[in-house]
Amino acid sequence: MEPLTLRGSLDSLSSIAQYIMTAAATAGLDKKASYRLRLAVDEIATNIIIHGYEEANIQGDLNLRADLDDDSLTISIEDCGGAFDPFSKLALEESKLNLPMAEKPMGGLGVYLAIQGVDKFFYERFGARNRNTFVVNRHH
């Protein structure tokens, strides 16, 4: 699939979802794997847009890629916000899973949903850019 560049704004979330669901259909992923991949990318994109761009007063793009080989579908999303490694928030989010709802903080569970929703998840910082990569196996 052609790479896709979108403005880093919440309005872009539905276009991201369409791109991911098209890639998932091309890869022949089943309904559950497709949903989880869409959720994973949506959660990470939302974090980038809200924390990386809006709260930091930075205007930037999101660059999406979808690469298909015989074994897996790989989605990557790049941004030019400040460095943010989702793994740094994973333990905190996991510790909140069992809290009663009234005690759950408003902070998200998005990183947890993203990382456990795909077969492999990577984060890389290169230069002034972040790259989050999601890999889903085509045959389970």
């Binding site: 949506d42 959660e43 939302t46 569970l109 998005g110």
Partner: peptide
């Protein structure tokens, strides 16, 4: 058809607004 964690946050907000 779809709910991200932003929807879960509204559930937490509900408990805060309407009482635990």
């Amino acid at each position: 058809e779809y709910m991200a964690s932003a929807g879960l946050r509204v559930l937490i907000f509900t408990k805060q607004k309407m009482g635990a």
